[in-house]
Amino acid sequence: MLSLSHFLVLAAILFAIGLYGVLTRKNLVGILMAVEIMLNAVLINFVAAARFADNPQGDLFALFIIAIAAAEVGVGLAIFLNIFKHTDRVTGEVLMELKE
């Protein structure tokens, strides 16, 4: 029988993987994918908590997060595409040039 802790541990592992990705990746697309993994970890927390506390609010939150994450990926990729057009690279260092 699965308990709440199983889900929380799974989510924590996923979150850690995502965080690792964000911290080590140079490619912006990679960072975005890692962020998505972190978001999904949070999602699992919400859904699991909702199921075990018998309160549908968590499910609702999860739905919202999915919808907003989809939009966020769209915006993010569009920005990366434009960065790529300008500089032929999609790495974080490129963004330093935006300063002042």
């Binding site: 965080l19 964000v22 911290l23 140079k26 912006l28 960072i31 974080g92 260092e93 963004l95 330093m96 040039e97 935006l98 300063k99």
Partner: peptide
């Protein structure tokens, strides 16, 4: 503080 270095931001947040 705004260095523009993404990895630095991420490390700070983490």
């Amino acid at each position: 503080v705004q260095t523009g270095r993404l990895d630095l931001y991420a490390w700070t947040i983490a």
